[in-house]
Design a protein around this nucleic acid. Sequence first.
DNA 1: TAAAGATGTCAATTATAAGTGACATTTCGA
DNA 2: TCGAAATGTCACTTATAATTGACATCTTTA
Lengths: 62, 62
Amino acid sequence: MNHVKEYRQQRGLSQLKLAQAVGVARQTINLIENDKYNPSLKLCLGLAKTLGTDLNSLFWEE
Amino acid sequence: MNHVKEYRQQRGLSQLKLAQAVGVARQTINLIENDKYNPSLKLCLGLAKTLGTDLNSLFWEE
DNA sequence: TAAAGATGTCAATTATAAGTGACATTTCGA
DNA sequence: TCGAAATGTCACTTATAATTGACATCTTTA
């Protein structure tokens, strides 16, 4: 479980807009939000910066 | 730049010991420490937990 | 000063992240 | 309530993370 979807929606972005901002395909965002796979660190950093947050807020549990 | 090497040395672990603890090859740790590639989120989480820290401490800049 | 441990790096292979195109369903504003 | 936007998912391909084995160099320590 991660918090990408929550942060994306708070920012009023669609999966497509977020994908374009980060430079990946829309499907990649969809898969990450639904925990279907394991993104790279570079992509996690891009998501955190684009969403105005940090790695722990998006991906750290406990 | 990341802080894996600093945390590993603080814990008194070799690259090999850390690799075994996290479940990857020694070369993988070496490449990450020298910024030769882009680890997966799952591996970053494993490193953070094994080293008793979190994602931001190891991988977040600024 | 020899030997063992630790590190950096290479080549080749395997596993999987990520891309592309497409289609069905759901959501939401005109 | 119709149509467009948004989302979830499929199959297939491409890029690259990660593995394995090997070897050279550099540190330590016996």
